[in-house]
Design a protein around this nucleic acid. Structure first.
Length: 110
DNA sequence: CGAGTGACCGCAA
DNA sequence: ATTGCGGCCACTC
């Protein structure tokens, strides 16, 4: 059937991405883990490419804090968006995940 | 329905 | 430090 895969997994990923506040970033692996499959980081990337274009995917980076390679426009565009959000992007297109990595649990601390 | 693919991750030489 | 490979999961055509 033409099935519409519920996208149960993807739906949760989009939900988290949509909740990422400006100036913060999340990793694909973390999003996958929060959604139930820590090893489905690739699916998160797929959701970004085939998912809702209205979500701030530019706030999603890899586990190393590097920007996505296949982002529409290139890492340069990705970096520009992050900088517009107030995120400091390194010359090598890397962000300080240690400081900008946002976690849902952080809400508890706040 | 079947097979391929990927905006990843981690490890190895 | 760099490069290459495989594995894993879910989505798309």
């Amino acid at each position: 059937m033409s099935g519409q895969s519920n996208g149960d997994f993807r739906a949760r990923v989009e939900a988290y991405v949509a909740q990422i506040p400006s100036g913060r970033v999340m990793t694909y692996g973390q999003l996958a883990g929060l959604c139930g499959s820590a090893r489905a980081a690739r699916v998160v990337g797929g959701a970004a490419h085939y998912g809702d274009p209205g979500l701030p995917w530019h706030r999603v980076v890899n586990a190393h804090g590097g920007l996505a390679a296949g982002y529409p426009g290139g890492r340069a565009a990705h970096a520009e968006h992050l900088r517009a959000e107030g995120v400091g992007v390194s010359a090598d297109f890397y962000v300080d995940i240690q400081q900008l990595l946002w976690q849902p649990e952080a809400l508890h601390e706040c």
